[in-house]
Design a protein around this nucleic acid. Structure first.
Lengths: 250, 250
DNA sequence: TAGTGGTCTAGACCACTTC
DNA sequence: AAGTGGTCTAGACCACTAG
């Protein structure tokens, strides 16, 4: 009672054809949340595919959250988690490009200053130690969208070159200035309101809503080597989460 | 020059052991961004594994963004995308549980009203058509954290039962009331400030920062069947994105 | 004990890239 | 033409679950 067959002459690989067949059965309600799928062996028999091909197909569906597998028990249709969302925040330039806008960065400030308690805590330094700070304004089609403030250890042996700070990613700046390669990052997103100074740069009224993304970069030895945050204009920046069905015809 | 060997007697499967070996080489800088890895065949020879096992290992690394594969060319070490972040927003109850808080939901209102222009647009209805609306306050350890406002088509044939609205997920409510199973959702996150009414319920001053998450649910036929949003207190809700190295000893 | 998914092998052919 | 990753096969053994 397959109803659907695998076309081995199609350009769409069999594992993907089967994934679309099973996806359709799930989305149409023929297979309901909690139902078990036929075993991998049975699916292989039914669609005349090897077990490894069936597994590749089930992997695709599992990655998309449509099914889950339990060793020794079977593979089951997931309850659709529609109140779950995955928001991906890309690097600013790529992000704006994808949205069809022309990105731009302006260096607002770069200076050595003494670590406040907060900065010191994040960088595992003592309060008052010297840190290198820079601030960049990020624009899209000439309109300010976000502000970046970054802090890192200050390496006295190396001068601060403004044009190094202009366009490079924070991780690159750290690698250049402190000869430590950040390999891991931790980011925290929260809602905030624009401080007076930030509002001025972002050309919004003070108190306007902003998305605040804090960032800590770690080196391979797990020491924090960079701290900073992004402040995104609430009216110009939105994160979208969407799961689309498997694409592509044959 | 392997330096590391696969222990076939370990409980850690070979593909995972190899993934950790390669991850270490990447994080330590032995393999730098842009470098190509040995071919799958060569890795199989070097570590005495079949090609499929090597591929499974490379899949793990690729999923984590450490490497990427290009057909006909090879597999390469990624430039670490440290300004990229993935924020996962779970369903409220699970989320609070994971954070060690006791979640609770209170039904604030449930009524039939006429669709505003915005609601009508999102639900593909005409302005002024009847829609079913409900509002829930979400708490963690008795403290208000978020507010939920939802809108769906009004099915006259079916009464509105308050206890159906109390605890069920929005998708379930839609399935019950309109006999349509939502299968896909689109969510948008942005920063906002609390409106007066919302601020009162959330026990924060009007104008406080909030995270606003808009949600549209679609049925299998791609028609919108539910619209609504969450308003999260900015001081009580933070999203975290973190990539950790491969875990587990042998 | 039987059935399930998890892992692994040793081949094979294909599409794509590079020379 | 040679080398790469992408897919597929037909087996195998294991760990786990259930009756």
């Amino acid at each position: 009672m397959a109803g659907n067959k695998i076309d081995k002459n199609s350009f769409v690989p069999p594992y993907y054809q089967l994934a679309r067949i099973l996806e359709r059965k799930i989305l149409s309600g023929e297979l309901k949340p909690g139902d078990s799928l036929p075993s991998e062996t049975d699916l292989g028999r039914e669609y005349e595919l090897s077990r490894m091909t069936v597994r590749k197909c089930l992997n695709v569906l599992a990655e998309r959250g449509l099914v889950y597998a339990r060793q020794g028990r079977g593979t089951f249709v997931s309850r659709p988690a529609l109140d779950r969302a995955v928001f991906t925040m890309e690097e600013f330039h790529q992000d704006m490009h994808r949205r069809g806008l022309r990105p731009e960065a302006r260096l607002i400030a770069a200076r050595v200053l003494r670590a406040t308690r907060e900065v010191a805590a994040r960088l595992a330094l003592a309060e008052g130690e010297r840190v290198l700070h820079f601030c960049r304004l990020l624009l899209a089609d000439k309109i300010p969208v976000a502000l970046e403030r970054k802090y890192m250890r200050y390496n006295r042996g190396r001068p601060v070159l403004e044009n190094e700070l202009q366009y490079r990613a924070f991780a690159e700046v750290i690698a250049l200035h402190n000869e430590v390669l950040p390999v891991r990052s931790r980011m925290m997103l929260q809602a905030g309101v624009a401080a007076e100074e930030d509002a001025l740069l972002l050309q919004i009224p003070p108190g306007s809503p902003v998305l605040c993304v804090e960032q800590v970069l770690f080196a391979a030895d797990d020491n924090p080597v960079g701290y900073g945050f992004f402040v995104y204009r609430g009216d110009r920046y939105t994160l979208v989460s969407e799961v689309r069905p498997l694409t592509g015809g044959d």
